[in-house]
Design a protein around this nucleic acid. Structure first.
Lengths: 216, 216
DNA sequence: TTGACACATGACACCGTGTCACATATAATT
DNA sequence: AATTATATGTGACACGGTGTCATGTGTCAA
């Protein structure tokens, strides 16, 4: 987490630093980005940077968290809007988020997202949900899931328990992220990836086994 | 790719270097590993390293590819063993691979796998299938899928086209990787993650929508 | 003996990181 | 006003890792 000092900074100076960081993290992944570039861009001395942040990753995850908070909120909003329909709200979340990434007036938004998704790993993925570095993370992850699962209407779903719902959500998230990645990797354009995601949701809904064994 | 010079090296010297690299990549992720450590461990001069490899990533992906080749072969073998049963062979692949990672006599095997999965990203994930840096990659990926899909018996699957099969395989791979990650992240032990993977396969097979709309 | 080629070597220039001693500002205390 | 405390600003610097390059060594063929 950024230090208290950082939050005491005048709004303009703070935003200036964040903007410079966003530009750098749009240009390069966390691994390739350099503090040197950020401070040169933001015109602050090296020492000051370390007065605000532990290191490069500290700043990166702070920005990522701000970005992710919007996504989480959006997921909740859409789940509520669609009366707890998990599939419909997930589809709309994917569509609107993809659209926002692509058509945002700031090109940094898209490039930042690209770097996030193409360099997505465990730490970053869970950051998209909740802060992993924070010691209370486990509890907060459980709480988010509890809230989100509370909103989901299970009456239309072919599941028998809370546990199964949790696994379903896990699967949906994996598919969602994979489609974002395929888009940013250039494997599919906007239309193709929308089609792909919708198709995969249909496969999930429909089920994939017909004959042979059909026991629990 | 390593240079011709590297492959001309006497077997022992080459293996020695690979072993040292494996130790370093077991200790640290690609980003955190250092060439300095590898050459110190392998007792070769710095200049020689650059005679064999372009950089750290070149060596890393070479080792990863060797490791991945076994996994791909295993997937094929199991698909054939189970007469093209996608779900059963995927389950056995997950079980045996997880077991191998955990109980391999060389602790490096497990630690290397941990670093792979916890730092899994687009580049690494597709490397687990085929070499991404190679210019002919796209074609080779298509070929692997063509072969693999050729082996799969679709008669027991509720799918209507080749396209749907491809998406199903994508979903399975995402779930498979996610469960490996959860294991290595310490979120679940061996038994739990086996249970988790099997449950998720059942959800897929069964399908998740009951009521409401059931149109295409 | 000479030249061509493949390979070996480690000193070095370069670059980014994180730290630290010192400077400055602001407010509280006497 | 003088003093002290506390928060913040600053950039030179030591450290460590990377990739290169000039030079050295070995081998084989002409």
């Amino acid at each position: 987490m950024p230090t208290k000092t950082f939050f005491n900074l005048p709004e303009e100076k703070r935003q200036n630093l964040i903007d410079a960081a966003l530009r750098e993290f749009s240009r390069a992944s966390l691994a390739d980005a350099s503090i040197a570039n950020i401070i040169k861009d933001a015109c602050i001395p090296r020492g000051s940077f370390y007065q605000y942040f532990e290191d490069k990753a500290d700043l990166f995850f702070y920005i990522l968290e701000e970005h992710s908070a919007r996504n989480r909120e959006q997921m909740m909003v859409l789940a509520i809007k669609h009366q707890g329909d998990l599939f419909t709200s997930s589809a709309e979340f994917f569509e609107t988020t993809l659209h926002r990434y692509i058509h945002d007036e700031r090109s940094e938004t898209r490039e930042f997202a690209r770097n996030i998704f193409l360099n997505m790993n465990y730490k970053i993925e869970y950051k998209l949900i909740l802060d992993v570095k924070n010691p209370t993370t486990r509890e907060r992850i459980r709480e988010f899931y509890r809230n989100y699962m509370g909103v989901i209407d299970t009456s239309g779903l072919n599941i028998q328990s809370e546990e199964e719902l949790l696994h379903l959500i896990k699967i949906l998230r994996a598919i969602l992220i994979q489609n974002f990645i395929q888009f940013f990797a250039g494997e599919a354009d906007e239309q193709e990836v929308l089609h792909s995601f919708r198709l995969e949701l249909e496969l999930l809904k429909r089920g994939l086994y017909t004959s042979k064994s059909n026991e629990t």
